[in-house]
Simulated assay, not measured.
Amino acid sequence: MRSITSADTFPPRSHSAKRLSMLDAGARVFCGEGFAGANIDLIAVEAGVSRQTIYNHYGDKDKLFAAVVGEITERCTARAFAVLGTFPDHPADLEADLTDFAIRFIRNCVCDRDGKFLRKLIHMEGERHPELFASWRIGGPGKVWSALAARFARLAFAGFLDIDDPDVAARQFFSLIFTDLQIPSMFGEVLSDEELARSASIAVGTFLRAYGRRKAGAEQSRETALRA
């Protein structure tokens, strides 16, 4: 672990800049050292502030950790909703358009720095802080799942999909597009653009085999059989 040097004086910065610096430094240190191994002195050095500044803002390491998780969750959720704004509500080619959406979501909400930090913190500390991560689940994925479910419901109403429970469909869609990322992310690997596109294509293809509209094809086959 890096040696800790004195951090008594620093160039003046705004309150907001200091806050973000402390939270970003906390995320890096908690991810690198784990909660038990992290200490306020190291986070202060990483943030370029005094240790007293961190105590003045957050009180102790537990409260700082909660603030780090909360901040990253908010940023990840905001980014997810920005990508959801590009969802193909009126697809020209449903499979291609959903695949492009999945690629955007993976690239901007899963493979970005905040997404990696959050997954690592959950993996390392989820058991130690169950209440904190239960709150994350409701305020992060829970909100995104609900928003995606509403969009799938609209596609189903328009005749593009055959879905009984949009909430289940939304969770399964996310599970499918995350499948090939789980092991690489555990070891810090990065998927190439080609690997990412292939993973998204496979996920969407599987999703559409489960929820793609089949009624028109079935009726056409029945009409063909009757004419024969």
Rank of each mutant, 00 (worst) to 15 (best):
A67F: 06
C109G: 03
H123V: 04
E71T: 14
I54F: 14
G37P: 05
I72D: 01
A38F: 09
G37W: 01
V29W: 03
M22G: 04
I122R: 11
R79P: 02
G59S: 05
F105T: 03
H90L: 04
T99Q: 07
R104A: 09
H90N: 14
F65D: 06
I122K: 15
C109I: 04
R107H: 12
E71R: 12
G70I: 02
Q52K: 12
S50F: 01
R13Y: 11
E127D: 06
T86A: 13
G48D: 04
V45C: 07
V110L: 03
R51E: 15
S6A: 09
A82H: 06
V69G: 02
L118F: 04
A36W: 01
D24E: 05
A92C: 14
M22P: 12
R79E: 13
I40L: 10
A44N: 03
A67D: 15
C31H: 07
A44G: 00
L98P: 03
D100P: 12
F133K: 00
E125M: 02
I72Q: 04
A27S: 13
R107K: 12
T73E: 13
F65H: 01
I106M: 14
R128E: 09
A78P: 14
T53F: 03
L64Y: 00
H90R: 07
P88C: 02
K116P: 15
H129W: 11
F117K: 01
M22V: 15
C111W: 12
I40C: 04
E95H: 09
Y55L: 06
R75C: 06
H129Q: 06
P88S: 00
A47D: 05
E127Q: 09
M22L: 13
A134C: 09
V45N: 14
D62W: 07
T77K: 13
D97N: 05
V110Q: 05
D60R: 08
Y58W: 13
D112V: 02
E71H: 09
K61W: 13
L98C: 13
R119A: 01
R119W: 02
D97V: 01
R113W: 08
A80P: 08
C31I: 00
P91I: 03
I4F: 13
S50P: 06
C109M: 01
A36M: 01
R75L: 10
